[in-house]
């Protein structure tokens, strides 16, 4: 599994098409097991297990942990859970890419 992270609108899906070779129709939003690529991991509620994510070829997740911590408890816990899930996915991933300004940096 390859993990692709980046901010909103940074060009993550475009990178997965351009560099990893998966066309848009190979991507499903917020649902595992339908296509090789899943995106919008950060919006899934409940979040899937790392084991389920690892079945995908590519997991795309928006970076959501860098602002003010939300007042709302549910939002706060969800955001932290997204971060922890990404840590675990990054540990298992064969490659991790971070995207910004349409550019990629391989972190692992």
């Amino acid at each position: 599994m390859i993990l692709v992270i980046g901010g909103a609108g940074s060009g993550k899906r475009d990178f997965v098409t351009r560099v990893l070779g998966y066309p848009p129709e190979a991507m499903t939003k917020g649902k595992l097991g339908e296509t090789p690529v899943v995106y919008g991991l950060e919006e899934m509620n409940p979040l899937p297990s790392p084991e389920d994510c690892a079945q995908a070829a590519v997991v795309i997740c928006r970076e959501v942990g860098c602002g003010v911590i939300p007042m709302d408890r549910e939002e706060r816990q969800h955001r932290e859970a997204v971060g922890r899930l990404c840590c675990e996915l990054a540990r298992q991933a064969e490659a991790v890419y971070r995207i910004t300004c349409g550019l990629s940096m391989r972190l692992k």
């Binding site: 901010g7 909103a8 609108g9 940074s10 950060e42 928006r62 970076e63 959501v64 942990g65 860098c66 602002g67 003010v68 939300p70 955001r79 997204v82 910004t100």
Partner: peptide
Amino acid sequence: VDIHRDGG
């Protein structure tokens, strides 16, 4: 500015 990673 880098303002797209806060998840809000």
